[in-house]
Nucleic acid binder design. Structure first.
Lengths: 137, 137
DNA sequence: TATTGTTATACTCTATAACTATA
DNA sequence: TATAGTTATAGAGTATAACAATA
């Protein structure tokens, strides 16, 4: 019945992202993490002492929406804040944060490879550059 | 700063869908239509006299969430309902609905070609089959 | 018994405006 | 003047449970 929709890349993008997103959300749930929180941990590991605003810009999350995310990460002891100056604060993974990050990486790695496995081999290598071209530039 | 995320197909999928979705939403807004409403019009044109539940199954929209969508489409005169039996109702595009569908098709066509145009030519043909493989099957 | 349409509701995600304090 | 962090809030989108009526 939805045959015509199958020829629309935009619709396929919507449905694929929705399906993949739901799957990743359910895999992260046992860690008590949302997708956004998990990406914050990833970025903090590679970019220690960055600010909340900078994180938000990199992840396309509004400053105001970073507040509850970071609040939960701090309350659960995964992230610590240290004042840089009177205005900014440096965010860092705690020891526990690095431990949980290890679990996150396992989940993300298997999620990503399962995702790629669903794609026919002849198309597989084209997906990442194609998708990145859509939202970057 | 988000360099590592660029190697994750799942993250690219999320960001690409978000960017493309926002763009389509803003292009449909002048018609007073959401993406979901627009897809309903598309399906109704090809499948006249289908029920709300069947539409919802095809579009992966819960029965309960179809109610306000169809209510608005009926109130704005784009869709009509006709009882099939005491339980179901046949949905159909009205004359005005078919007119608006013409506008929707123009917008969707240019949206889809603009989307494909962002993708480097060598990857372009692989996107649709790859994305459909992710959520179908 | 299963399905249709519906209501009510809650939860998440996101967007906006405003405020304080600081650079 | 611009930026950082924050609060409050509103709007989507989505999920669940329940119900009456009908197949």
């Amino acid at each position: 019945m939805d045959q015509q929709l199958l020829s629309l890349p935009g619709y396929a993008l919507r449905r694929a992202a929705s399906a993949a997103g739901a799957e990743l959300t359910s895999r992260l749930a046992p860690l008590g993490l949302k997708q956004a929180s998990a990406t914050i941990l990833l970025l903090l590991d590679a970019n220690p002492c960055v600010t909340a605003s900078a994180l938000g810009r990199a992840l396309d999350i509004q400053r105001a929406n970073m507040v509850p995310l970071l609040k939960q990460l701090e309350e659960t002891g995964l992230v610590s804040r240290t004042p840089i100056d009177g205005k900014s604060q440096a965010l860092e993974l705690t020891h526990k944060g690095r431990e949980i990050l290890g679990e996150v990486l396992k989940i993300v790695d298997s999620f990503e490879s399962d995702l790629l496995a669903r794609i026919p081999a002849e198309h597989r290598a084209h997906v990442l550059p194609a998708l990145n071209a859509i939202w970057r530039d």
